[in-house]
């Protein structure tokens, strides 16, 4: 009896912590979608958002017992997969636009360890 009580309390604590962690994951993914310098970055963020939403559905299903939503999770996975495939085909068909080209300076957005020595980078890369 005490064992099952302990297990239930442990599950409650785990549910709270995991809801907080999933919320953080959701927030960070949304930040990448807003910030994402190119279209494929945003598509990747939407894909990740789908998987985080499926994790949310599972955790809420454990918490409240509404396992009906597992069907919705399956449908969400299907829609996310199809959307990513369609976006990939669209990226192939669209090509790389000039808008992307301006905004794709990765060094400016995320730090580059070779930022001060670009020539060195190209030379060592060619040496390999």
């Amino acid at each position: 009896m005490t064992h099952s009580d302990f297990a239930r309390q442990f599950l409650e604590i785990c549910l709270d912590i995991s809801l907080i962690l999933l919320g953080i994951a959701f927030f960070l993914t949304v930040v990448r979608i807003i910030k994402g310098p190119t279209l494929p970055d945003r598509v990747l963020g939407l894909d990740m958002l789908t998987s985080v939403a499926i994790g949310f559905i599972a955790v809420i299903g454990i918490d409240t017992g509404f396992t009906l939503y597992v069907d919705i999770a399956i449908a969400l996975g299907l829609v996310g997969f199809l959307a990513t495939v369609a976006f990939a085909r669209f990226i192939l068909a669209r090509g790389k636009t000039a808008d992307d080209d301006e905004r794709q300076d990765l060094r400016q957005i995320d730090g580059d360890p070779f930022a001060s020595a670009t020539e060195t980078t190209s030379r060592t890369g060619a040496g390999r």
């Binding site: 604590i13 912590i17 960070l28």
Partner: peptide, 30 residues
């Protein structure tokens, strides 16, 4: 049932930690 409950708690902790690390990687990788 007790063992399954504790195992489920560990699994959702690990899964949400994986999801948070993945989102952090999405934000931080170059």
């Amino acid at each position: 049932g007790t063992i399954a409950t504790i195992l489920a708690g560990c699994l959702i902790l690990a899964g949400s930690a994986f999801a948070a690390i993945a989102a952090f990687g999405i934000l931080r990788l170059p």
